[in-house]
Design a protein around this nucleic acid. Sequence first.
DNA 1: TCAAATGTTTTTAATAATATCAATCATCGA
DNA 2: TCGATGATTGATATTATTAAAAACATTTGA
Lengths: 300, 300
Amino acid sequence: MARTDARYREAYNTLLDYCGRLQVGGAVPSESELADVAGVSRTVVRRCLARLEETGIISWNGRHKRLLKRPANDDRLELLGDRTAAEDLEQRFLEWVLRFDVPADTPLSVAELSRMFSVPQHELKEFLAGLSRFGLVARRPRGGWMLRGFTKEFAVELSDFRKVLELNAVRIATDAPVGHPIWTTLSELRHAHLDLKSRIKTDFHEFSKLDERFHEAINSVVSNRFIAEFQKVISLIFHYHFLWDKADEQERNAAAIEEHLAIIDALEARDPDGAAKAAEKHLRTSKTTLLSSLRYHELG
Amino acid sequence: MARTDARYREAYNTLLDYCGRLQVGGAVPSESELADVAGVSRTVVRRCLARLEETGIISWNGRHKRLLKRPANDDRLELLGDRTAAEDLEQRFLEWVLRFDVPADTPLSVAELSRMFSVPQHELKEFLAGLSRFGLVARRPRGGWMLRGFTKEFAVELSDFRKVLELNAVRIATDAPVGHPIWTTLSELRHAHLDLKSRIKTDFHEFSKLDERFHEAINSVVSNRFIAEFQKVISLIFHYHFLWDKADEQERNAAAIEEHLAIIDALEARDPDGAAKAAEKHLRTSKTTLLSSLRYHELG
DNA sequence: TCAAATGTTTTTAATAATATCAATCATCGA
DNA sequence: TCGATGATTGATATTATTAAAAACATTTGA
């Protein structure tokens, strides 16, 4: 067997419904028309017609098609679900790498990953090929893949790259016109930060989510497909690493809130230099935290 | 058939050569040793041994292997060549897109491309999956791929992204220590620029190559896998677009030489602000040229 | 006896093969 | 004559098959 006939099955049920709305004994429209109704090609329609004839729901003879009886409910074809597995492969893959702390230079077996994530092998290969563009995985000389992994070098390069992108975003944000949605978002974020600050003693773990929202907002002012693509990966990696490092979490998060607020202050004051300085300070802290979380893991 | 047995064929010939250097009547080394010699697994070695025995070149009985006769030249297996096709697929693909000016939103047929570049389909799919990370191609709803292409938006976003990366590189370059290779390279580039400037009237078309060298040198100070990956694509695209736009080529190139020299001056003077300004000016010019070359093509 | 060599089995990655779907072209009939 | 159908071609997604590698088990001979 090759590909699934899910498309045919869905079309068949659609046509069944459609026939249900026709007069018994009346004519069934042309193949092209039915193709439009079901949103598939004529080839699929003809397969459906063949089955409809076989089941005795219609008669079919050249271009003479008649509805013989009203289709019953159990004439419908069952559609095999399970169409969400490949959805968030990226998320699940990175989650696996980070959660289980898969070491650098681990050989990745397409077959094994395919089972683990219940995704067909060829989809995994395409996915890995995509990741290789980010330097996260690489091809091995004689076939197969390997995880280049979260080494110290990787973390440094990632942080530096993030800094380049985000300082650029901050610079652009200060130039955003008054009506730009960023200002509303920033104002909301300020309140969210002040709110969390007031109850940081107990709810400090909520910061991780807030951090993600904050950086996403900053970067949203840059409409650039290249940057956007990277941002997804970057934020995911930073997110997970912060969850890792449990040492001094409350203090770190409290400090980060202040740093965020400083950035918001400078942005709202339309102070490019001040915003850049504040952002730089915050990104330096982030980098340190990322590196220390790696060290922590190496020792553990 | 499934995968090719090219590996086996090559190994067989290697072992044939190896046997040629042994004494006739003498013992043939162990399977593992032969595996090392040919650089393949024992499985392949055993297939080779089986054939060697069949051909009567060796006798094989458990661990007793003897060379019966010196292998002749026509004992060798023919290896189906064509093993360099997939080498620079990226280069060839982009060259095709740019040279033939393939319009945006063109549907890409994997089968057709596979024939065109003589690369197996699955390799092309992996390649396209990689490119999709750069937003150059995208999946179509019902299977297949399409070229998102070199629209105006693409050019703008690419230029902006390049600017972000390259200004960062310039900033880092001014901080490079005295012994850093960049200073030698820059000095060489200065001479090359002055040289070309003196004969710009006739040799202006040489500039494209020099431009590539210059930007590569600037970016070489940044050792970052993410940036490096992008740089390849960016430089290729700019390179081809400059080749396109024939209007005022000599003047444009003469002006660009001055801009490059200004950047080199500022860098050698260790003047970060001056270098950033000069670079920004040059990148603005590049962006304009890229956009005008697109307009030119739209009209043509 | 025990390490090295061989025999056997399992697993993986590369690639051919194929079912499904889409599109085109030729033909037919009202 | 034009719209509908029939036949053909060519594409992609997915399975099946095979070469190669790796893992495991057994044997042999110094």
